[in-house]
Design a protein around this nucleic acid. Sequence first.
DNA 1: GAATTGAACACTATATATTGTATTATATCA
DNA 2: TGATATAATACAATATATAGTGTTCAATTC
Lengths: 150, 150
Amino acid sequence: MKCPECGCEESKVIDSRPTENKVRRRRECIQCGARFTTYEIIEEVPLMVIKKDHTIEPFDREKLVDRLCRATVKRPVSLETIENIVEEIAAELKNSLTREVTSDKIGEAVLRKLREVDEVAYVRFASVYRDFNDVDSFVKIISELKDKKV
Amino acid sequence: MKCPECGCEESKVIDSRPTENKVRRRRECIQCGARFTTYEIIEEVPLMVIKKDHTIEPFDREKLVDRLCRATVKRPVSLETIENIVEEIAAELKNSLTREVTSDKIGEAVLRKLREVDEVAYVRFASVYRDFNDVDSFVKIISELKDKKV
DNA sequence: GAATTGAACACTATATATTGTATTATATCA
DNA sequence: TGATATAATACAATATATAGTGTTCAATTC
């Protein structure tokens, strides 16, 4: 832990405050007396997604953005909104205390958010994600949408 | 420092290894016994650049990439190479033990890297950065280039 | 501009982290 | 595949960090 002022390797902790997911320490360089702040954070473990075919792959934020972009083509949903949704979901997953999530859980989370934002995109996303095979599936999800509104 | 497994707030350090600019700790949750790794890192203090007109502004990686892109238009220099150069310079600055650098120092560092990569881009960048006012300046820098090659 | 919030600072008793040495497992690279 | 580097594990003696309480300063917000 090189002192940012003089490069000396030795420093001592003069204050230490734990918070929910960090420890903030105030350090003082042994040599030059400079004070600086450090943060102790938990190592990022990549979040793994269990897909429907039981293969496992790391959670890919970009991929999710991509899928959402496709569901919102020609719909009044900004890229910013999409980024926010993905950001929120990533945060939820990060707090879920588990390093593995099924793609199902992610899909449902997306649907939950999307319903509030744009109903057409919601139906589109559901049709891809839930593998709609007939028109009835559309009818069903739309009537569910209407029910929830009442 | 919430345990990533059970969310418990209490953990103890079972190992601790300092390196040049990090401290890696191995922690064990008091409650569930889960083990996880943490890193203590020095807080990022934004690097300030002192410009020629003596104004100070934070170092902007993107801006530097931008300037390099302009100097390499139609030259066989990939964006990746540019990103690497900027990355290297940012790293050098970060290790320079000072929180303020003159834009001059940055400019010279860019030139140093650029000379190895593409001579045309090198001359172009120099002409902008060193405010060439006449053709002689070009002649001069080119002859310097040739000298260094020998 | 008053109120609120977060960080820096100080001091102290006590509990906890550190670091050397060493073995094993895992991942990366030629 | 064999070599090399990196991380995890264990153990023990000693030095060092922690957390409680409280004050001040600066930045942000109403």
